[in-house]
Amino acid sequence: MKTNSKFFILSIISVLLMFVLLRDGTVAVASEKSLLEEIKGINEPFDSRSVKQVRPVTQKTVLAKEEYQGGTFRVLARKHAIERYKCSSCHLDKPVLVTQGLELTHGNVIINHGRKGDELGCIDCHHPDDRNYLEGKKGRKVDFDHSYQLCGQCHFRQKRDWLGGAHGKRVSNWAGDRVVYNCASCHDPHSPRFEKRFPATYSVPLN
């Protein structure tokens, strides 16, 4: 009887111990993978207006003609930033007959876009007849404010990421209405790669 009860108590203790050990083990394993999985499992929509004190973007924006995973969004407007817009103030239906007009007005444009030695020409992007617009590969007019429609024809991967949020970035706020930088806000369309330069600062060894 005595040995029996001893055995009984021992077995209970060992079962408890096993339970504790096992539980600890499973928890550790579960939590190692869980954060990303947990996050990916959350699909309840979030109302970014619940964030107080969000200030709307002050720059000029336009409603994008496409949608991202969260619906409509806005992009930074472009036209007001282009020095020589509107193009039709010179490019009318009459031919431009100024001597050296191209050099005088567009001499600062250096095209470094496309393969070396086979760079793009003006009318690869600009509309040949209506200069106030860009021209898509299928001949449709593309507004300067919506240049992503044009760029995305070749750079479709970048455009996909830009729509989703992995390329480019939002303006000022993570909350509130989504406003993102336009392609040409960061890239010079005539020479889209960023130039090499010195970094803005330097680092000293850690304390």
Partner: peptide, 29 residues
């Protein structure tokens, strides 16, 4: 207050993405 961190706002190449992990439509997600 809903603004982006200063590093994200300053990044000239858009290498930095910041957002709400609990918002399924956010850039970070």
């Amino acid at each position: 207050k809903g603004k982006l961190p200063a590093c994200v706002e300053a990044c000239p190449t858009g290498a930095r993405v910041f957002g709400n992990l609990l918002d399924p439509d956010s850039e970070i997600r």
